[in-house]
Each structure stands twice: as C-alpha cells, then as structure tokens.
Design a protein around this nucleic acid. Structure first.
Lengths: 192, 192
DNA sequence: TCGATACGAAACGGTAGCGTATCGAAATGG
DNA sequence: CCATTTCGATACGCTACCGTTTCGTATCGA
C-alpha cells in the first residue's frame, strides 16, 4: 500500500471518516462475513477505488475502523461505597455493550475465525477498553485481585446474556449482576 | 418440504446422517456464513438434490443438524463436597465448549444475527444442555438460586475466555474459576 | 503553469454459490 | 409389472462481489 507521499493532491480526511463510519455501521448490521467493500463504498458515498487505495482488503479496513473508533468514556467514580460504583460501571458497561459493541463483537467474533491478524487486533482493543474500565473502581473496599476478577466476570456475563440468552440488560439485571455476583465476589473481607 | 409419503423409494437414513455430520464439521471449520450447501453435499458424498429435497435452505439444515447432535453427557455427581463436584462439572463444561461447541457457537453466534428462527432454535438447544448440567450439583451445600447462578456465570466466563481473551481452559483455569468465583458464590451460608 | 496524486464513474473478467431442472438408474410397495 | 419416489450427475441462468483498469476531472505543491 503506497503511503501518501506528500506530493500531489492530498487525501481527503472526511472520506476516511465516512469510510470508517460506514464500515462500522454495516459491520453491526450485517456482520463481518456479509460485509462487502462495495456496500461500504456505497454507504460512504465513495468510489471503490478510494477504498482500495487505502486498504489492502476487508480485514485491514475493519481493523483500522475499529482501531479509530472510540466509545463513550466510563463514568467517573461516584461518591458512595463500592456498590454504588459497581452499579455505575456495570450500568455503563451493559449499555455500551448492548448499544454498540454487541453487533460489533458478534461480527468480529465470527470474522476472527478466519483471520488471525484481525483476531489479535480485536483482543488488543478489548484489553485496552477493559483497562480503562477497571481504573474506575475504588481500591479501598476491594479484595486483592478484584479488578482482574471484575474484568473477567462482568463483560462475560453481560455478553452471555445478550447473545446466548437473547435478553436485554435492563436496570433489574444490572442490580442482579452487582448484588448477587460482583459485590459479594469483589468485596474486601471475604474469606475463602 | 414435501414429507416422504411412504410410497415409492424410501429415503436413505445414512444420507441424513452423512449430511448432518458434514454440516456440523464444516460449520465448525468455516463458520455459518461461509458454509455452503455445495460444500456440504461434496463432503457428505451426496448430490445437491438430496439436500434440497430435505431442507428448504441453509438455516433449516443447520437447525436440524444441531438439533440431532448430542454432546457427551455431564459427569455424574462424585463423592466429596461441593467443590469437588464443581471441579468435575466445570472441567467437563470447559472441555465440551472448547473442543466442540466453540466453533459451533461462534458460527451460530454470527449466523443468528441474520436468522431469527435459527437464533431461537439455538437458544432452545442451549437451554436444554444447561438444564442437564445444573442437575449435577448437590443441593445440600448450595445457596438458594445457586443452580441458576451457575448456569449464568460458568458458561459465560468460559466462553469469554476462549473467544475474547483467546486463551485455553487448562486445569489451572478450571481451579481458578471454581475456587475464586463459583465456590464462594454458590456456597451455602454466604451472607450478602 | 505543470507534474503528481486523489477522486468518481464505469466497465471488466473472474469466482462462487444460489436454487432449479433434467435425465437415467435404483429401490420400494401394490 | 408398474407407478412412485429417491438418488447421482450435470447443466443452467442468476446474483453478488471480487480486485483491477481506464478515463476524465479535481486539487494539491513547486
């Protein structure tokens, strides 16, 4: 892929944005396999050549699009104890996964199977997002290793519910996840 | 669609089996989207006509194949306490998911997106398998509602690890899942 | 002004799978 | 024997998308 050399007409950054946006939108709609370069070009209002000038193939395009994208930031620590912060973070996480990432993750989940590069890229990004998340938990009331435990359990249960159970993550579920699972698990002073 | 009427040459059940087998094998190998009727026919050593006579389309075929298939049975309750039984069941579950179902689930996870019928069918089957699992836990040492909690947490964490973390479920992980998560969560006498 | 590059539009040949149709042979039950 | 159905083999037209090429225009730096 020839990088832009600086000489000649420069690339239009708005087209980069349009391509990324279209790619992510279609990715969540139809999935990775059904995703076609032609559809992305059409949705972005861009010629196919403009895409092939930037990316070698679909995997490279998707990786770049997901790379660039940023979700909303996790909530700041609130006043109150561990439970209140857990409710805030889990609520945010559930909403985040449900609204945006689930189609994305589902699509990538499938797409990863055939493309090891894409798989590694996705896992790198997921880890990055998780790291930003576990910072939001107050350390005082936490059992040792609780942050890792949270990152291991909370997304898992949320994703599992949405995908395999096919149910939504309403307020009731968030409270259930916090009160029945996370809080007793992460609270300091729990003896094995 | 036309059911065999009884008159004329009967259908060969070995071909049904061959079709199911080929479908499941290819499903785990290439995924739902990449799965093609032609490839299934080739792998099964069967003409396309033979498949289209039985199933209207890909979704119907896959649903039937997954329906028929049975994994190994969960282990019988062993002597010893809750922890030993948890180790046995979780070890079996991890192996089951890792060996067979992960490719299957991944493929279906993606395929479900486009086909609501298939999605419902899959969830029905998953629930059936989970029900057979939670029977294997001894009721005496369990907190109330622990069986549902187990079904909610254990598969979620296992799947999440395999898919999103990209790591295997070795003996060490099974112990971690039981000792650090499930056992403290399910044990009777845990006070919120 | 000029060279180089980016862009849109369109066309291209190629691949892959779809679902259907046709044909002859084989297997049933009446 | 015979109607009926299954099965393999093969061909068919169709659609979608691939990745590339061409051409005319637009937009930059020098």
């Amino acid at each position: 892929m020839p990088e832009p050399s600086g000489v000649g007409r420069p690339r239009d950054v708005r087209r980069d944005a349009a391509i990324h946006e279209a790619a992510l939108a279609l990715l969540t709609e139809v999935g990775y396999d059904q995703l076609s370069i032609e559809a992305i070009a059409a949705r972005a209002g861009v010629a196919k050549t403009t895409i092939y000038r930037r990316y070698r193939d679909k995997a490279a395009l998707v990786a770049a699009a997901v790379e660039q994208r940023q979700g909303s930031a996790p909530p700041e620590p609130v006043a109150g104890g561990l439970r209140e912060n857990l409710l805030a973070v889990v609520g945010w996480l559930a909403r985040e996964i449900e609204e945006q990432e689930i189609g994305l993750l589902g699509a990538l989940f499938a797409g990863m199977r055939g493309d090891a590069r894409l798989a590694d890229e996705m896992r790198r990004i997921l880890r990055r997002d998780q790291a930003a998340m576990t910072d939001r938990l107050p350390g005082e009331e936490l059992a040792p290793g609780a942050a890792e435990l949270f990152a291991e359990v909370a997304p898992a249960v949320i994703v599992h519910r949405i995908v395999f159970a096919g149910e939504r993550c309403d307020e009731r579920f968030v409270r259930h996840l916090v009160d029945d699972i996370l809080f007793p698990l992460l609270r300091k002073g729990i003896q094995s």
